[in-house]
């Protein structure tokens, strides 16, 4: 009898439900990391091993910054760092950097992403902007020359940019400016790429954004696991597609009105599958997410067509992140048994 009394004392009394789903934050975050690996491999194949160095720097800085700040905020360090969210931010930031950036760019960027964008708003779950995108915007302002100008690619890159190489830089590390920063460059004389190239990723661009096939593979995995919702990238990409068809274009390139080119060139696929789907910074409900995706699509097309920038994915998602609280307010779920309330 005494043994039973002993058991009594250890009975857990907690509120229902007494069973929980197996999904948790680490499972989701590490699945995102896994899904990003193909794009990273593609980046290394196209641009060379230096990319690996940049990605690692991004991750390591993100994790160290996260640990430091958790320590300063007196929050549990180890468990939170293990959840993988800092690693995701580090990878994503590196993926939207040019392949030849100097080492300090991912370091400064990751630090900014974690310390400023994520933790000044309260840490995971409370940040308003996608940390990686906000950091990229910050870097664009801080190091415009590095981010915006024509990019050099690595001499040892496996990609076939050889025909573009004009000279080798003094240190012998990089070949000289070989091309525009993105296939979307709209200056006269900028190059047009084949779809096969765009699909495989064998084009200039940021480290992780060029290979459509690698990104789609990762995206499909996340959709299959239900970690991201299929309709976010679907509406986003479809909107860009339609906008390209209907908007009058002022760009003089041969692909200006080709919607397929707009989808596969540049950062749209990376943005649509991995940035717009960042749950922390996107609306909560399905209706809200659809509005978010369509808005981001429209902004992306508008920026690409009518601004000085060749690319619009980063800013369009950041703008929609800003609008998220508002969208949430107007897209509350419908209380069962009632009609949708017009706010």
């Amino acid at each position: 009898m005494s043994s039973k009394n002993q058991t009594d004392n250890q009975l857990i009394v907690s509120a229902p439900p007494h069973i929980r789903d197996i999904e948790n934050i680490p499972r989701i975050m590490w699945a995102v990391v896994l899904s990003l690996i193909p794009a990273g491999i593609a980046g290394v194949l196209v641009f060379g091993y230096y990319c690996l160095y940049i990605v690692s720097l991004g991750c390591i800085t993100a994790v160290i910054t996260e640990a430091l700040i958790l320590r300063l905020r007196k929050l549990p360090v180890l468990n939170t760092v293990k959840d993988g969210s800092a690693v995701v931010t580090g990878i994503l930031l590196a993926y939207i950097l040019p392949p030849s950036v100097p080492w300090y760019v991912p370091v400064v960027g990751s630090f900014f992403a974690i310390a400023i964008v994520k933790h000044t708003f309260g840490g995971l779950g409370n940040n308003i902007w996608n940390p990686a995108l906000a950091a990229r915007a910050f870097l664009q302002v801080s190091y415009p020359a590095v981010i915006n100008s024509d990019w050099r690619i690595l001499q040892h890159g496996v990609g076939n940019f050889a025909h573009n190489i004009t000279s080798v830089d003094p240190e012998g590390k990089f070949v000289d400016a070989i091309t525009r920063a993105t296939p979307l460059a709209k200056e006269a004389g900028a190059e047009t790429y084949h779809f096969a190239q765009l699909f495989l990723g064998n084009v200039p661009g940021c480290i992780g954004e060029t290979s459509a096939i690698a990104l789609l593979l990762g995206g499909a995995y996340l959709i299959y696991k239900r970690y991201i919702k299929w309709y976010v990238p679907a509406y986003y990409i479809a909107t860009v597609f339609i906008m390209v068809l209907i908007l009058p274009s002022q760009i003089a390139t041969p692909w200006a009105k080709n919607p397929f080119y707009h989808v596969f060139a540049g950062g749209l696929i990376l943005g649509a599958f991995f940035m717009a789907t960042d749950m922390v910074t996107a609306p909560l409900t399905r209706r809200g997410l659809v509005i978010f995706a369509i808005g981001a699509g429209m902004l992306t097309a508008l920026i690409r067509f009518y601004s000085g920038y060749p690319e619009g994915v980063c800013y369009s998602i950041l703008l929609m992140n800003t609008a998220t609280p508002l969208i949430d307010r107007f897209t509350k779920p419908r209380l069962y048994g009632t009609k949708i309330k017009k706010v």
């Binding site: 934050i25 989701i28 922390v280 909560l284 997410l289």
Partner: peptide, 12 residues
């Protein structure tokens, strides 16, 4: 089990 709870990550 007892679960440690975290901030909402707004997954919906």
């Amino acid at each position: 089990q007892q679960w440690r709870s975290h901030a909402c990550i707004r997954c919906g």
